[in-house]
């Protein structure tokens, strides 16, 4: 029992230390102006772009549809880019070999990479919603705010699940940024951030149902429209399960790549 508790304590420490250090490592090259341009200023411009594009192309004059969709899409900046860069950053930084050589619990190591980005992502979505309030007069008067906060947290977790999986792809490919950028832009279309899911072709709706964000965005729209937490419960469970599924696939890939890389001696081969 004592040993079990000691192991648990060690794994918790690995989780939080790994989370903190891998997040901090990103700032070796991402400086505050870069962070502000990407996470604080960037979302306001793509929000404005899609609101105006929606008004002109789709003839929809209610900005809240695009404001909520694109504010929630901000979750993917941390979830997809941040998390995947934390995973594949070990390969680029030359530390992967030591990581795989250590006896540290792999699950704690792996999931720890997402922790800080989830907090950061929640912060990012709140800022983006703030822009929506300020520029487009988003109405939150009917909103159950704790429920919205929970929705944001689950949505960011779900995108982080996808980020964990994409980060693993970064362990075997050089072009992970191509994959990340493509996924990020595809989410703009398939998640329902800018196009009604119901107006998508059947195959695109099928894609929407298996990606993160879709249910989170739908839940946020309902909550801001005045619905209760109970009403969006199934959507939130769905969003959580999608994220957990991606994280699980990512972990399986992580373990598999470790075994293959060690067997072939190609751990850091590019």
């Amino acid at each position: 029992m004592k040993e079990l508790l000691r192991d648990l304590g060690l794994n918790v420490r690995i989780f939080f230390q790994g989370a903190y250090l891998s997040y901090l490592a990103l700032f070796a090259w991402i400086r505050p102006p870069h962070y502000i341009a990407t996470k604080v200023v960037g979302p306001v411009f793509y929000m404005i772009f899609f609101v105006l594009m929606g008004a002109y192309v789709a003839g929809r004059n209610d900005p809240s549809f695009y404001v909520i969709g694109n504010a929630m899409q901000t979750a993917a900046l941390s979830g997809v880019f941040g998390v995947s860069m934390s995973i594949d950053g070990d390969r680029w930084g030359g530390t992967l070999i030591y990581l795989f050589g250590s006896p540290a619990n792999r699950l704690a190591l792996f999931l720890g990479r997402a922790f800080m980005h989830i907090l950061d992502g929640v912060f990012g979505v709140i800022i983006a919603l703030g822009w929506g309030l300020l520029i487009f007069g988003l109405d939150l008067s009917q909103t159950h705010l704790p429920a919205l906060a929970l929705t944001i947290l689950i949505t960011v977790f779900s995108t982080a699940g996808m980020g964990l999986m994409l980060g693993c792809l970064g362990l075997i490919t050089r072009n992970v940024m191509l994959v990340n950028n493509t996924i990020f832009f595809l989410l703009f279309v398939f998640s329902g951030a800018n196009v009604e899911i119901g107006s998508l072709p059947g195959w695109a709706q099928a894609v929407s149902s298996i990606i993160p964000l879709t249910r989170g965005i739908a839940a946020a729209r309902l909550l801001i429209g005045g619905e209760s937490l109970a009403a969006v419960g199934p959507l939130l469970w769905g969003e959580f399960l999608v994220g957990a599924a991606y994280a699980a696939i990512g972990f399986l890939m992580f373990r598999q790549f470790e075994i293959i890389a060690i067997r072939r001696g190609t751990l850091e081969a590019f």
Binding site: V57, A58, N181, F185, V189
Partner: peptide, 15 residues
């Protein structure tokens, strides 16, 4: 990729 995704989105948004 990016221009095609934006175009696809706009095509589906078209009223």
């Amino acid at each position: 990729i990016q221009p095609m995704i934006i175009a696809l989105m706009a095509f589906w948004m078209l009223r």
